[in-house]
Nucleic acid binder design. Structure first.
Length: 499
RNA sequence: GGUGCUGUACCCAAGUGGUUUAAGGGGAAGGUCUGCAAAACCUUUAUUCGGUGGUUCGAAUCCACUCAGCACCUCCA
């Protein structure tokens, strides 16, 4: 019995509004698509939260034995400044302002995106397709929609006919919106508007004479609509129906709603079995967003160069911080919360180090401890399988951390556990920290020279202590502390850590 | 205005009908260890879950109303 059978996953499906048991379309294989960034500027921490949530989901699915194909796109064309299919293309605008080729902008911010994901220890995805690399496929889908009667061409642009689609299918089923309400509440059609109804959305847009990013199509030169790429690329790489589609909560409407309509409109099939949405990162209770000017860029966070931060925090501390909450809850970003997370992260990493050095030896096993340990291991899986509850999982990891500390301090003996249970405890404790949650030990800037120098000082201090020259021994300790080197005495000797 | 979400200790944050008179992290207090510290360990820190009613043998968890906040859409600008 494999882990995935022993611990079946339940997850909250936005489509049904309920927690459901996860049953992939093809047993053992999972297809997962997540909406990636529009690469016209730096990703901020709110964006990163979303990708981190799905990184952990990806990791856990693999950890319990699924083969996962994870597709995350790069949007490099078609995302206009507002979502009413008006305004300038975000990337073209940036290119114009910086006097660069659009593809230079795309490359620059794609590189930056990858670099940041790497700093936060996100795993590379299986396929990372870009919209401009799939223009042909997008044109085909537009044609398909026209053939099926769900899209119409006018003046070189093609729009999705939402009201016609809604007659046969249910537009709004993901976001709980009703087409009548959308029609009523909208702004009146202005004379420039080519759409039959204002809720119609562009699947292909005619390029104005000054528009740089343009491709030939049966309808003249133009570019694809924003929603189209995700439908096209998810279909191409994961099939007409696949298991998981994820993204930030703010994409539910209209983006994901439109994706469903496009898929059903062109293939006749419901594209996604489970829709997962991660919630927003907030600052002082408000959504972190570029337009509100309250977003943090990763480098500001690392350096502490931001008015809301007292100091810098490392990527792993932030990763730990984010995993302390559930992905479907809003998470408020504050200095105090980060400071607490930093200490918690260090405590966890100390436990991890201890677990590396423990060796089992046999003796009198303690059945209470044995059972308790088995229960903790079980809980790790149960909590992650319960809608990927990283907060609960961390709570269990901290209980195990306390055990580790007790082993080290001699309050508990490893011999009180059977060899099998002990081995399993270490494997899963470490596995959940590094493989599932993706939390690593921060590479301390230590080197052999530094280690050697501090060892010399530790020895000198030890000599002073033995001579009861506490004035000197305390001075060594205090001076090192001022430099950020913290000495910790224990029965086995003195260790140090960098603050 | 429509739709949805949230409100849990000093702070962050799990928990959605009984094993929870509520995890875990941080903070605070006391103790153990220590030459003294630090770290670690142990104990304490919400009889209570925004408020008011109701359903139930039993509710933080379900229902109604209400207050507060947020998000998406819309409107306005």
């Amino acid at each position: 019995m494999t882990s995935k059978e022993k611990y079946p996953i339940t997850l909250y499906n936005t489509l049904s509004g309920k927690k459901e048991v996860f049953n992939p379309i093809h047993p053992d294989h999972v297809g997962m698509y997540v909406c990636g960034p529009t690469v016209y500027s730096d990703v901020h921490l709110g964006n990163i939260r979303t990708f981190m949530c799905f990184d952990v989901i990806y990791r856990y699915l693999m950890y319990i034995g699924y083969k996962v194909r994870y597709v995350r796109n790069i949007t490099d064309v078609g995302h206009l400044e507002n979502d009413a299919d008006e305004g300038e293309d975000k990337i073209a605008k940036k290119a114009r302002l910086q006097q660069l080729e659009p593809m230079e902008i795309v490359q620059q911010y794609t590189n930056g995106f990858h670099h940041v994901l790497d700093q936060f220890n996100l795993m590379p995805v299986s396929i990372e397709p870009s919209a401009t690399g799939h223009i042909m496929e997008q044109i085909e889908m537009v044609q398909n929609l026209i053939n099926n009667g769900y899209a119409y061409e006018i003046n070189g642009s093609v729009y999705f006919d939402v009201s016609k689609y809604d007659k046969a299918h249910n537009y709004g089923k993901l976001s709980g919106r009703k087409i009548e309400e959308l029609m009523e509440s909208g702004r009146s059609l202005d004379s420039q508007d080519e759409k039959r109804n204002k809720i119609d959305f562009a699947v292909w847009k005619k390029a104005s004479p000054t528009h740089i990013m343009r491709w030939n199509s049966p309808w003249g030169e133009g570019f694809p609509g924003w929603h189209l790429e995700c439908t096209v690329m998810s279909t191409k790489y994961l099939g007409e129906s696949f298991d998981i589609h994820g993204g930030g909560m703010d994409l539910v409407f209209p983006h994901h709603e439109c994706e469903i309509a496009q898929s059903i409109g062109s293939t006749g099939k419901d594209p996604v079995k489970y829709w997962l949405h991660s919630n927003m990162l907030t600052v002082n209770g408000q959504k972190m967003s570029k337009s509100l000017g309250n977003s943090f860029l990763p480098h500001q966070l690392f350096s502490g160069d931001h008015e809301l931060l007292d100091k810098g925090y490392s990527p792993m501390v932030v990763r730990f911080f984010m995993l302390q909450s559930h992905y479907s809850s809003t998470l408020d970003f504050s200095n105090e919360a980060l400071q607490a997370a930093e200490k918690g992260y260090k405590r966890l990493m100390e436990g991890f180090k201890i677990s590396n050095n423990l060796k089992h030896n046999s003796g009198q096993t303690d059945s209470d401890l044995e059972n308790k340990t088995k229960e903790l291991i079980d809980d790790l899986f149960k909590n992650m399988s319960d809608d990927f509850n990283t907060a609960k999982t961390l709570a269990v990891l901290f209980e195990i951390t306390t055990m580790m500390n007790n082993f080290k301090a001699g309050n508990l003996k490893v011999s009180q556990l059977s060899k099998e249970t002990f081995d399993e405890l270490i494997v899963q404790y470490q596995g959940f920290i590094t493989d599932v949650l993706g939390i690593n030990e921060e590479k301390e800037s230590s080197n052999d020279l530094l280690n050697g120098v501090i060892d010399v000082l530790i020895n000198l201090r030890q000599n002073a202590k033995e001579a009861k020259n506490y004035q000197l021994s305390d001075k060594i300790r205090d001076d090192l502390k001022d430099l950020g080197v913290i000495l910790k005495d224990s029965k086995e000797g003195t260790e140090y850590s960098l603050s």
